[in-house]
Write a protein that binds this DNA or RNA. Structure first.
Lengths: 156, 156
DNA sequence: CTTGACCTTGGAGCCAAGTCAAAGGTTATA
DNA sequence: TATAACCTTTGACTTGGCTCCAAGGTCAAG
């Protein structure tokens, strides 16, 4: 199959597939005479693996590692795989703590503010930001828990 | 006061303060004869406002808007301020939903895996990623809830 | 007077994960 | 045969928030 069919079947864009190829995540068995990438079912399964891992929040770097394990499972242990997963979970949890703290503060701000068409001169949100006794910066900012920007919202 | 004192008093780096100046968030009343930025208490309060807003999760763009409200509160309403805050809260909540879903999936993966030194040939995490019946991509990926990269971890 | 810490500027680089554009070759359909 | 829809490549651009660099000027202490 060619790239656009693979794109259709995986829900990724052809752009993204080529990008993943550049990153060494995805490849193709061969090329057609005219130079088109030619994918088979094995390639498809690999891309689906990438997609599944990405949906769980793994970075492309993590995914590269997972793929290298995948192609030679005998030489790798559950420990490795679980380690990567545990690390990602810790990142996600750290980010969750940050966001929960933000959510709480934002909620308090909103509750304190009338939100009406009155002048902002006495706005309690502005006041709170001025004399910021709003919960501090939460020790160490968490590591990267990567955002999927606008994946799969390809428009024509 | 000069930039490094302002940096010390606000907990931001001098780099960051200059960067914020370039973004139009922060300024200084004047320059010393030799061209050094000269800040006063008013500038300090403005920077503290920026910092407070940033800690709550507002983007620099949001902060620019909030600052423009701050300098002329009479011409703005609580409604505007609350609107910005509500929008940010919605973003944070959307991102929280994503991350909670990831956390849940990662937890399930970890629970299913022995995590031991055994070969990964039968690793249940790998298997789950292969035949990904892992919760899909959550409709629309949430908007930007900006990360503070490594703020205030300035090293020499 | 020297040393070292500070300050100035503009611009480049970093991260992740794409996204797009240009300029052209190929193939399927009408 | 024309035309549209595909495919190819390289490489630059995006976003947000910094972070660093070079190359030089200023200033206070010893």
């Amino acid at each position: 199959m060619r790239i656009s069919e693979l794109a259709r079947r995986t829900g990724l864009s052809a752009h993204t597939l080529r990008f993943y190829e550049k990153q060494g995540l995805v490849s193709h068995r061969s090329r057609s005479e005219s130079g088109y990438r030619d994918y088979d079912e094995t390639d498809l399964r690999r891309v689906e693996f990438v997609r599944a891992a990405r949906n769980v929040g793994f970075s492309l770097e993590d995914i590269a590692t997972l793929l290298s394990i995948r192609v030679d499972k005998n030489s790798h242990s559950c420990e490795e795989v679980a380690g990567i997963t545990r690390r990602k979970l810790a990142e996600v949890e750290a980010r969750l703590r940050e966001l929960r703290s933000m959510k709480k503060t934002l909620g308090i701000l909103l509750d304190s503010c009338c939100g009406g068409p009155e002048s902002a001169v006495h706005c309690s949100i502005m006041e709170a930001l001025e004399h910021g006794q709003l919960s501090g910066p939460m020790s160490e900012p968490a590591g990267p828990v990567h955002r999927r920007a606008n994946a799969s919202v390809r428009q024509a």
